[in-house]
Design a binder for these strands. Sequence first.
RNA 1: GGCCCCAUCGUCUAGCCAGGUCCAGGACACCGGGUUUUCAACCCGGCAACACCGGUUCAAAUCCGGUUGGGGCUACCA
Length: 544
Amino acid sequence: MVQEPVVTRFAPSPTGYLHIGGARTALFNWLLARKTGGKFLLRIEDTDQKRNTPAAARQVMDDLRWLGIGWDEGPEVGGPNGPYFQSQRKEIYDKYIKQLINDKKAYYCFDTPDQLQQMREKAQAEKKNLIYPRPDKFPDDKDVAKARAQGKPVTVRFAMPTTGDIIVSDVVRGEVIFAAREIGDFIIQKSDGLPTYHFACVVDDELMGVTHVIRGQEHLMNTPGHQALQDALGFRSPVYAHMSVTVSDSGGKLSKRERPKALRQAIKALGDLDTQKLAGAANISVAEVEEFVKGKNTPDMSAVDAMAEYLGIRLPEINVVDFFKSGYLPEAVVNFLAFLGWNPGDEREIMRLDELIDAFDLGRLTKSNSLFDRQKLIAFNTEHIKMLPDDRLLGRFRDYLKAIGSPAAGGDDKLLARLIKINAGARTLADIEKKCRFVFIDNEDVQYDEKAVKKVLLKHDGLAILRAVGERLAGLEVITPETVEKLLRDLAGERQVGLGKVAQPLRVSICGTTVSPPIFDSVDVLGIQNTLQRIKNTLKKFGT
RNA sequence: GGCCCCAUCGUCUAGCCAGGUCCAGGACACCGGGUUUUCAACCCGGCAACACCGGUUCAAAUCCGGUUGGGGCUACCA
């Protein structure tokens, strides 16, 4: 489908890190803009003074950049339609609100939250939704002054049409019909003077020239209100596409609350617990920890993360940054996200960003909700690790090592590239890192896994074989993966045992565990001196 | 409760709009086997779905209605 260049936008509310669902919305908007040779804007919807933080906008932008989603207009890059922070656009909104009030299409209200709550409960009792009772006569400026003098909250409501249907023509759902009178007069200006989302979004989309709005299905019910607003203001309506929602594999909507929930369950399953130490690790009080475990409160994200890390519990990834820290490639995350509610119509699945752009088509959005399947994400990640060019992968690996504070972060390019190579087939960067840590620790700091020692070293002549391996290795003149392989194979042959019986004791000796990169490479990368020292240490520690 | 959306393997989905080529295709997961110095990767094979009821039609996964189930919204949040 060839299309005219479109203008799309992503309009996050900066309340924290970018949520994976938000990333998907951003991606679809970005893909459409790129596909059509149009523009993609970033607009920060920070009209909620209570919830938004300046740091969060920064984080959202970092996360988008990590994913490879850049914006043509918006914070930091500028553009002709700024400012791109809604909190800086108050005069613009005020002008349009004034216009609506003058046209008698909006009016002032002075209700307190309590009054509204009562009205709502009454409506609920009558099994109806609250349709705000519009006054016969709209308050004038004098009334407003009086209300303010009395300390009443002053808000502005939009006067919705009261008859007829409002038809939302949605790209994915077709025509959705709403009875105008069901919508009711909604607030467009809050008592703090800032516009609500509904108003700011309609005004900005018009002023910024947005032609296509791709957003979550949760906004479908808002759309008739937005269209009525556009009519009242003399604006054109953009093309709407309401995507399906992504739900979690633990049931329910994919939500930020899943991390603390998972942590709480894990803690309960753990049984006994040193709350003192846990509180220390999370830098919160013991009382807070106890209340959290009981489900009475939830500390902030950093405390949750700290507790999980301290306890060695893996929490489900929810924010984009969580995926980064779990060792996923942005290429894989983006590819996976694109397939949540979209597909190219042929049998391709593993696709690069440029292929995604090329194949993208709004008409192929899926209607039904989809479940976020982490297993499939891992499979995508495995494929993308395989196909990413070496230098790019090295860069990603470096970024990852730095982010998690790995001892491997100090490795030079040549070493790191080698480590990646000998771990071909790895599922995540985290897997590679874990298997390579042994290279970066001191010989004396090898932690021997109890089960590995029992199973490999203390059985089947493990120690005796290890001693023989050590002796021969010491006499080896040229150390390469190939010479090490020959040595081990010869030894296994002489002893009439499988290679595993020779390789495993050596592996446990140098890594402390039964899992490592291929043993010949492992020895080569570690270096002969370190290898011999570790063998010596092992024999001393477990030998009789 | 009201309003709105959705419904194909366990999961993501193709097919549906233009009914027959679909006893429904792919991928992930799972199961079995192979390869193998561990893990991962890899190779081969297998299991597995049109929610239900009615209607239209020579013919329905595809069109229509209802039922059931799931989801969303119902804020001076976005």
